[in-house]
Amino acid sequence: MSDFVQYLVNGLTIGAFLALIALGYSMIYGVVRLINFAHGDVFMIGAFAGFGVLTTLGATGGMALPAVLAAVAAGALATGVLGAGVARAAYLPLLASPRLAMLIAAIGVSLALEEGVKVLTHARFKSYPNALDGGQVMSGAVRVTYGQLALVLLAVALMAGLWLFVTRTVTGTAMRALAMDRDAARLQGIDVERLVLATFFAGSLLAGAAGVMYGLYYTQISFGMGFLIGLRAFTAAVLGGIGNLPGTMAAGVCIGLVQSFSAGYVSSRWTDVIIFGLLIAVLALRPTGLFGERVVERA
């Protein structure tokens, strides 16, 4: 029983990170119909940016909350700018080309980011400074640390922030409109290209924040970490019904739980087989995901 609760807790934690990344996939797909393959690598860059800030600030031990928050903020900002810059350079020129062209550009960018970091880090793992409080909210059979709790709360806060931004602000409303009808959005005076870049910025920002949080939680990061996490998060975005933000968040948490329970009860070696098998099965039965898409396709 306590195993079960522990897996649940771990799954919820991982799920929170996955949901943050999945939201970016979902938003970006919503506005430009692109599976942004580089999104997982943006997450990875976020982890490294946060690593840079933390090692510079030299925060170790205890609840170095200001340092942690600074790292998350810096990582998020850096990836936001990176995401928008990449979109400007490699995706926007292809906005009118066949969609396959943009997808391949995204694959290229993904590889380039991964290989770039590989060269810079000499393909070595980096260990995050231990900035999280090791104190335990619950101890004994089921372990929950304050740091873990803080990370989950932060992730939830970010998601809530995104939700408020998208539903309550004019710019957020414009983003949703853009996902529905690009031409009609132009006719409202919306600068579509700029808003697309803003969407990349926001989506990448969340991924970057998730990257720093992942680093703090798992303490080991490397150039290749974005690939599988990115795939899992994308799976969550598809399962949640792409463009459907609440569905995406829910599916992110689900995938986190699947990951945690399959690692606990089966073997972590089979985790991805289970996740992708689930993806294929769900799509075969429900081509628009578990919770339905919110993407309007015109005939």
Partner: peptide, 30 residues
């Protein structure tokens, strides 16, 4: 297009093209 709109030329497109999942008020807001 967005600069032409800003110059004062409004366009109601063929087929209405309202934003279907947005509310009436949100459509007007945009």
């Amino acid at each position: 297009a967005h600069r032409i709109v800003a110059a004062g030329l409004g366009h109601v497109p063929e087929g209405r093209r309202v934003f279907p999942a947005l509310t009436v008020a949100e459509n007007l807001l945009l």
